[in-house]
């Protein structure tokens, strides 16, 4: 505790680094997964077989990306993309790829979970395709997407720590440094702060879900149809 207080400035700086890098990765991953997942969902509903195969292909790419081991990826990326070693950019890219890989399938699943009857009824009411997509399909897929966003958020916050191994500063630096110095307090502080960041992110996601989708809790309570 004394150590943590004495090194307050360092901890604040590392926490801040950790927060913004993981936030960027989560948001970028989601922003990329949404259109790609939507394409996979739409292609899967196409009457044409090649389109459905393409849909399956896109989703498999997502799964394959996720199986790339993280440490080698962090080592390869800089030379692959011509980025300087120690660059924050390469870890942002790596974690965005993982976030994307998890999200893309669940975006497609979320869209598929919207009851066809509701979509049908929206069409019958006179929603145009775009109106239906934005004001019916997207919000109704929200709860499932939110669930996977929570998984992505936690996994990104914890994965980011290994970025410290390549020299990028964040809460993971407390592990590497603490390990080198055989200093348990520093490691423990790193763990506690990482967990706190993950919990705060989760709380923000859950709260914004409640704010944006007040109906979803009612629906669950009411048991639907």
């Amino acid at each position: 505790m004394n150590w943590a207080l004495a090194n307050r400035d360092l901890l604040v700086e590392l926490t801040w680094q950790h927060v913004w890098v993981s936030a960027v990765c989560i948001l970028l991953g989601f922003a990329l997964a949404l259109p790609v997942g939507w394409f996979a969902y739409a292609a899967n509903r196409s009457p044409r077989r090649p389109m459905r195969q393409l849909s399956g292909g896109v989703l498999s790419i997502g799964s394959i990306l996720y199986t790339i081991p993280s440490l080698p990826l962090l080592v390869i990326l800089p030379s692959l993309l011509g980025l300087p070693w120690l660059s924050v950019l390469s870890i942002v890219i790596a974690l965005t790829v993982y976030a994307f890989a998890i999200m893309v399938r669940s975006v497609a699943d979320a869209l598929r979970s919207v009851p066809p009857m509701v979509l049908d009824s929206a069409t019958a009411c006179g929603y145009s395709r775009t109106q239906r997509a934005l004001t019916v399909t997207l919000p109704l897929a929200g709860p499932v997407m939110l669930a996977s966003l929570r998984v992505v958020s936690v996994s990104t916050v914890s994965l980011l720590s290994i970025g410290a191994l390549t020299g990028v500063r964040n809460l993971g630096s407390l592990f590497t440094n603490g390990y080198n110095r055989d200093f348990t307090t520093e490691i423990a502080t790193g763990i506690v702060l990482t967990v706190i960041v993950a919990l705060v992110f989760d709380a923000i996601i859950v709260a914004s879900g409640r704010l944006l989708m007040p109906w979803s809790r009612v629906v669950r309570a009411g048991g639907g149809e």
Binding site: P115, V118, D120, S121, A124, C125, G126, P139, L140
Partner: peptide
């Protein structure tokens, strides 16, 4: 078709209401 559907009332089984509205 979109204009046409807006001008015709449609009631379906299970009502087909929008659960988020």
């Amino acid at each position: 078709p979109v204009e046409l559907r807006r001008s015709i009332g449609y009631v379906m089984q299970h009502a087909g209401l929008l659960p988020h509205r």
